[in-house]
């Protein structure tokens, strides 16, 4: 059912593009750079993790040719991307579209980092004042580096003097 919709929609796009082509087509022969600009954002299932613009398989070469044809027809970037998604699935996109379970990939890391940050803050807060006044400067000194002390002395002298 969805496939048929996709198919019809794709056909409709092609038709619209065909009709609209003369109006949009400014450059009859798109340059390699224009093709690559779009190809860079796509991933062919035949060579996973390699962007389309640098993939050497025959399948990828055909994809690039398709992009070129579509550019000739005056399609814009979104239309072309949309076409590839309909033909080959979400996996052609460099990042999963943010819907369904895919939300997780965008939501989980920030949530973990924020929770981590809050835990960290709470931990540090809990350390402060657990030992009121016990921690005096002198106590810290032996543990510090000799040079830090010297440096600090230096600085203090310079600042006061």
């Amino acid at each position: 059912m969805r496939d048929s919709f996709v198919r019809v929609f794709g056909l409709a796009l092609v038709l619209i593009a065909l009709v609209a082509a003369p109006a949009f087509a400014q450059d009859p022969e798109p340059s390699d750079d224009e093709v690559n600009r779009i190809a860079k954002q796509l991933y062919c299932p035949v060579c996973p993790n390699t962007p389309l613009d640098v993939c050497s398989t025959q399948a990828c070469a055909q994809w690039r040719a398709t992009i070129r044809e579509q550019l000739e027809l005056g399609w814009n970037e979104d239309q072309i991307r949309q076409y590839f998604v309909e033909q080959y699935g979400d996996r052609v996109l460099a990042t999963p579209p943010a819907r369904g379970i895919n939300w997780l990939i965008y939501v989980l890391p920030p949530v973990v980092i924020i929770v981590g940050g809050l835990l960290l803050l709470r931990t540090i807060r809990s350390w402060i004042g657990t030992n009121n006044g016990r921690l005096v400067q002198e106590e810290l000194l032996p543990e510090k580096d000799v040079y830090v002390n010297q440096l600090e002395d230096e600085l203090r002298r310079r600042e006061s003097g």
Partner: peptide, 28 residues
């Protein structure tokens, strides 16, 4: 750890997506 979580999740997510939805995704 934040960077680690991002990397870990990015590597693992296609596996999870395939297991739960049957669809492969690319994390580029």
């Amino acid at each position: 750890m934040g960077i680690l979580v991002i990397c870990f999740w990015g590597v693992l997510f296609p596996l999870i997506s395939e297991l739960f939805t049957g669809q492969k995704v690319t994390v580029g």
